[in-house]
Structures are given as structure tokens and as C-alpha cells.
């Protein structure tokens, strides 16, 4: 059993996986961890090689597209300590092809698939639960605090949907934002966020939506448990219809 270390970045993870899978005789017994620079740390450090990481990811996309997208969502989930599982999963994917996702009795595959499903599920949820507010200058702003780092794929979704508007999506906890302006998308970090003024008509539209939300429910069938299980309370903070309830 060989131990390897990497620097904790996504590129580092990919370069390490690429090297171990091509060079190690039995990559499915190797261990990969993030380097912590402690005195007694064991293992061989694999330096990050951005070019090799890119080549390896392109290889995944070509040969095992489903595993490549599983890897993408796995990274978005920002779950720590599962690098070894990911390494074993990728090694299996390159051996068996994309049908590896069905090998759920294998612990590494199950770990990776479960974590990546968490991010893709939250992305889908957020496509529905994100709420934009119109600003005084005519642009739209949405704030969110998702568990996973889904800003990039979420912004891509809205760049196809709200093509003609200018908008921002701000991840409050990670302090990063996506900006769609005259047809191009930028993603960057925000040092200090100042909430801009809302447009004059915004309050009126929000009141209409809140009224619709109230009246569309059938009082005889009230079911707060079902509502919460479909729409967990952690998302209510920025939901227009849940303000002032």
C-alpha cells in the first residue's frame, strides 16, 4: 500500500490521480490525502501539474463522460477526506467504463456517487429556489447560501434562461458572485458586499407573488411537514414568499 499527498487544490487532485493511475501497479490500494505539513506525515508528495491535470480531465470527458461529471459535482460538494475514495473510483471508471456508477456495493464508488449526487441535487433545487430582485438600475440580484459550491453551473443555467437581462448571483457565505452583463458571464470574489437599492416596482411584484403563494394552497389540505421536507427551511432565508411570515 502506497501513500501519496497532494496540495489540496482541484488541479493537484487531478494531477495526483493521473500519476498514480498511470504509474502505480495497483492504484485501487493506494491512499491519497491532502498534505498538512506535520512533522510525522508519511507519503510521497505529488506536485501539482496544471497541464497534466487538464490532459487527464479531458481524457475522462472523452472516455468516461459520466465519471467526469460525477467528478465535477464531487468537487462542488467540497467534502473533505474522501480523496482516496475518489482515486479508487476514477481507477475503476477507467477500467470498467461509465457503468461503474452501478457498482454501488463498492464503498469507494458509493462514497463518491453519494457526495456528487448531493451537489447535483442541490444545484437542481437551487434552479427553482433562487429568487431575483430588481435593482434600481434595472439589473437583477439574487442571493443564496447553498451547502455546495454550485455558483458556476447555476449561473450557466440562468445565462441560457434570462439571456436578455443583466443579473448577479451572490453566494453570501463563500463571498463569490456571478455577473451576467450584455451576454457574457464573469465569476469572481466580492470583498465587501453592499446591498444595492431595489427598484420602485419591486415591492409591488413581491406582494403579488406573496399573495399568489398564500391563495394557491388548499387550506383543507394543509401539510407543513411535507412543505418542509420538499423545501428545507435552510433555503427560506432568501425566499420572497417566506419573508415576513
Amino acid at each position: 500500500m502506497s501513500r501519496y499527498l497532494y496540495d489540496g487544490t482541484v488541479e493537484g487532485l487531478l494531477s495526483a490521480a493521473a500519476r498514480i493511475i498511470t504509474e502505480e501497479k495497483d492504484p485501487e490500494t493506494a491512499v491519497l490525502e491532502e498534505r498538512e505539513n506535520t512533522l510525522f506525515e508519511e507519503g510521497m508528495f505529488i506536485a501539482t501539474d496544471a497541464a497534466a491535470a487538464e490532459v487527464f480531465f479531458q481524457r475522462l470527458r472523452r472516455d468516461v463522460p459520466d465519471a467526469a461529471s460525477t467528478f465535477y459535482y464531487f468537487v462542488l460538494a467540497e467534502k473533505e477526506g474522501l480523496e482516496t475514495s475518489l482515486l479508487h473510483y476514477l481507477a475503476q471508471a477507467l477500467r470498467y467504463g461509465d457503468r461503474v456508477k452501478g457498482n454501488l456495493t463498492h464503498p469507494a464508488v458509493r462514497n463518491v456517487v453519494t457526495v456528487s449526487r448531493k451537489a447535483s441535487r442541490e444545484l437542481h433545487r437551487m434552479k427553482g429556489l433562487l429568487r431575483f430582485e430588481k435593482l434600481r438600475d434595472g439589473a437583477y440580484l439574487a442571493r443564496m447560501e447553498p451547502d455546495c459550491n454550485i455558483l458556476q453551473p447555476l449561473a450557466l443555467h440562468f445565462s441560457r434562461r434570462l439571456r436578455a437581462e443583466d443579473w448577479f448571483i451572490y453566494d453570501v457565505r463563500r463571498r463569490i458572485a456571478a455577473r451576467w452583463h450584455s451576454g457574457s458571464l464573469q465569476i469572481g470574489s466580492i470583498e465587501e458586499f453592499v446591498a444595492p437599492a431595489l427598484s420602485d416596482e419591486e415591492k409591488r411584484i413581491q406582494t403579488l407573488w406573496q399573495a399568489f403563494f398564500r391563495t394557491i394552497a388548499i387550506a383543507d389540505r394543509k401539510n407543513p411537514g411535507l412543505q418542509k421536507s420538499n423545501m428545507p427551511m435552510k433555503y427560506w432565508k432568501y425566499l420572497t414568499e417566506k419573508q415576513g411570515e
Binding site: G128, R214, A219, N223, L226, E241
Partner: peptide, 15 residues
């Protein structure tokens, strides 16, 4: 696949 945007007080989705 469709997207649900909210869930009303009766637990039914609003899309």
C-alpha cells in the same frame, strides 16, 4: 425534467 420553484402550505409544488 421540469423544475419546482416553491412548495405551498399544503405541501404541493408550485412550478
Amino acid at each position: 425534467g421540469g423544475i419546482c420553484h416553491s412548495w405551498s402550505d399544503d405541501g404541493r409544488c408550485i412550478s
